[in-house]
Nucleic acid binder design. Structure first.
Lengths: 144, 144
DNA sequence: TCAAACTGGATGCAATTGCATCTAATAACA
DNA sequence: TGTTATTAGATGCAATTGCATCCAGTTTGA
């Protein structure tokens, strides 16, 4: 059973894609089952919550989330319409804005986390031990 | 720096999602740059090519690809319209059909692989050595 | 200091996805 | 055998995404 290094890369990619899609689909399904917003909302809210008072510029959020500009623009609009995020004119650059999470946004994120975090613990934490998880994370970060 | 097992699971998931999205976006971009169809087409064509003469039922392809039924139905329609896949009435079940890849489908898949495979070797194979790739694949398969 | 180039963000339109539901055929079972 | 439940696959409609392009403000540099 001699296999080229390339085979190893392909196998790793296939396993990566499968694991990601499976986990992602699970998380989305659990959130929907609880009538909660989708994962993308969570990611945006979490980045904004981490950013704190200072907030984030849309283009910063875009990079953090690996989102296309136009998709981020629309996501933010939905979040704002839902009252979870506030858009303020940016003092330093009149083209831009500063985004910050509202109190309602924080509470929605917290509610989502109860469901998402539990699913994550099951789907990921439940299948690998602590050492394996660290090893996995380390290897994956080399792909960034 | 004490961190709970949960933190390890979260970090692993974050790294997993990031690595997947980055690689996937790269592959899609490369294919598009060469005016080739998207990744989903590749996956479907490859599954059908592996299945050989016997072909696959749509629901089998659906499971293999982790696709929603309605999305698969439409993907197959596009592939058929593009002449890459053939749909034949299924002899054993008159509700169903059997899908098989055409000669043109095979050649399209091959052309895609030149681009996709190269990007994969760079993005994945180029960043981890053989042992790491095997280790990574093994860990990821435990998440399935 | 003014035009050209660039950056931040929005948007019209086409393609794709998600959801619910539908049709046709098979399986189950009273 | 005559329902009733399931399964395979398609589809109408609404929401989302991708693409191209636009507008407005900023930077560059002749």
């Amino acid at each position: 059973m001699t296999s080229t290094p390339d085979d190893a890369a392909v196998s790793a990619w296939v396993a990566l894609a499968r694991a990601y899609r499976l986990a992602f689909a699970t998380f989305e399904a659990r959130l929907k089952a609880e009538s909660l917003p989708p994962m993308a909302w969570y990611d945006a809210l979490w980045e904004l919550e981490k950013a704190g008072e200072a907030g984030l510029r849309p283009f910063e959020l875009e990079q953090a989330m690996l989102f296309e500009q136009y998709n981020l623009s629309r996501l933010v609009e939905r979040l704002a319409r839902a009252g979870l995020v506030e858009r303020c004119a940016c003092p330093e650059d009149r083209r831009g804005q500063v985004l910050s999470i509202t109190a309602e946004g924080k509470s929605t994120r917290a509610r989502m986390w109860r469901v998402y975090g539990e699913a994550l613990a099951e789907t990921i934490g439940g299948r690998l031990d602590d050492g394996e998880l660290r090893l996995l994370a380390g290897l994956l970060r080399k792909l960034g």
